[in-house]
Amino acid sequence: MVNFFIFVGIIILILMMVVFYRVLKGPTVMDRLLGVNVIGTKATVLLVVMGVIFERVDMFVDIAIGYGLLNFIASIGAAKYFQHHKVLQPRSQWEEDLTKS
């Protein structure tokens, strides 16, 4: 049974890696933000899976809840950033800088 859950965990990790590609490559910040959010959700599941492997689910659920409650704060913060600045792509700006100097 433990092996099965380890297998499940590894599959989730591989799924995370697929999303991770978007986080690393992401042409705009929004891609990265969404990617990080998806990683956050996957991580919540993975925490519970680890709890099953350790045979201590009751303890790990606490962490998972805490994690779930907190991981969208960063997203809201970033959203508020874009509400004020309204630029997704700073590339043009620093290219300007580049040509000036």
Partner: peptide
């Protein structure tokens, strides 16, 4: 892990975003 979940996910990223918000986002070449 719990501390890191609370601090890393909840708080320190927000501190960074706040700093980028009040300073500049671009990196000078």
């Amino acid at each position: 892990a719990f501390t890191e979940a609370a601090v890393g996910a909840g708080v320190s990223t927000i501190f960074f975003i706040a700093t980028v918000f009040h300073t500049s986002r671009t990196i000078r070449y």
